[in-house]
């Protein structure tokens, strides 16, 4: 089967999908990155191969997410694109007519404004990560509630309490305060969801014209409480695409297809990269005042790439 591979290496999760020629998702893998992006990519490729049973002919590879360059070095990518482009492309493909994309991932939250099928404006969280997946994860584990059930608890609330949501540390203090006052857990969690949505709309969505259809994607879209809070705050329906948690990877695969159609061949290095030995080295260059942190990647003991230097002295030594 001919497929396009999309790899999204994020802060919290690494996702790999395959799209067939009709742009349908044939396989999807959702893994935790756990701070080790290269093994995560290797594991993702391995699982895709296991799931598909060796019948894959990869026509193109696209990477995205904060680890996109690393993933590209491992797998050989035809398109290396930022998450915003990838999400915009995926969303307007999956939900034709979408005009606003709300995306909340592990540490990033972003809003993308789409008109007539192309992104016209976007914003990302700048100074604050309150309300992203990592914080919700942390709160769920503090309360000893599986993250999968966290959002559903919020839906059981009848009277959300008001939580200060501007800063995640203060949000936590406020949650503890409300809990010691005797409020129910459901009401506190519901209040937290509303606070995070308020924070998102004020910080990330400020000044943007939010028109329907609105999609909500990224890992946090699994949280029913946040979805409900968005719908309440925006006064409109929020669509969660079927593959909401791997939309970045879907976008990457679509972009790979576009790139390969233009240039004709793929740079895919083959599934055998999953068994190769990758090691990273880094050092601070002291040759000038920039003091760049140079990183080197070794594959099976051989240097394959260096980056991080501004002058190009190190990175050009390997072609």
């Amino acid at each position: 089967m001919d497929v396009y591979l999309g790899i999204d290496v994020g802060s919290v999760s690494t996702n790999v999908v395959t799209l067939n020629e009709n742009n349908e998702i044939t396989h999807k893998i959702y893994l935790r990155t756990q701070g080790r992006p290269i093994p995560a990519v290797q594991k993702g490729l391995e699982q895709i191969l296991t799931a598909a049973g060796n019948h894959l002919s990869v026509k193109g590879v696209g990477t995205t997410g904060s680890g996109r360059h690393l993933a590209s070095l491992v797998a050989g990518a035809d398109s290396v694109k930022n998450e915003i482009t990838a999400h915009a492309v995926a969303s307007s493909h999956v939900v034709p007519g979408v005009q606003t994309v709300l995306e909340i991932g592990g540490q990033d939250s972003k809003i993308i404004i789409i008109r007539n099928g192309v992104a016209v404006d976007f914003a990302m969280n700048t100074v604050c990560a309150a309300g992203t997946g990592s914080f919700l994860d942390q709160q769920a584990s503090r309360l000893d509630i599986p993250i999968e059930e966290f959002g559903n608890l919020a839906l059981k609330s009848h009277n959300a309490v008001r939580i200060a949501g501007r800063c995640s540390v203060f949000a936590e203090s406020d949650m503890i305060h409300k809990q010691q006052m005797g409020h129910s857990l459901e009401d506190i969690i519901c209040g937290l969801c509303e606070a995070l949505v308020r924070n998102y709309l004020n910080n990330v969505g400020k000044g943007k014209e939010i028109l329907g259809a609105v999609t909500f994607q990224g890992g946090v879209a699994a949280n029913a409480g946040i979805k409900a809070a968005f719908e309440k705050a925006l006064g409109m329906e929020v669509i969660i695409p079927e593959h909401f948690n791997v939309m970045g990877a879907v976008g990457a695969a679509l972009l790979a297809k576009e790139a390969v159609q233009k240039k004709g061949t793929t740079l895919f290095k083959g599934f055998e990269v999953k068994d190769m030995d990758y090691r990273m080295k880094s050092f601070e260059c002291t040759h000038c005042s920039n003091q760049c942190e140079v990183v080197e990647m070794l594959r099976n003991g051989q240097s394959v790439a260096r980056w991080g230097d501004r002058c190009g002295k190190w990175s050009t030594m390997i072609s």
Partner: peptide
């Protein structure tokens, strides 16, 4: 870098 790339793509 991500923002610049995304902006130019847009």
């Amino acid at each position: 870098a991500t923002r610049l790339e995304a902006f130019l793509d847009l």
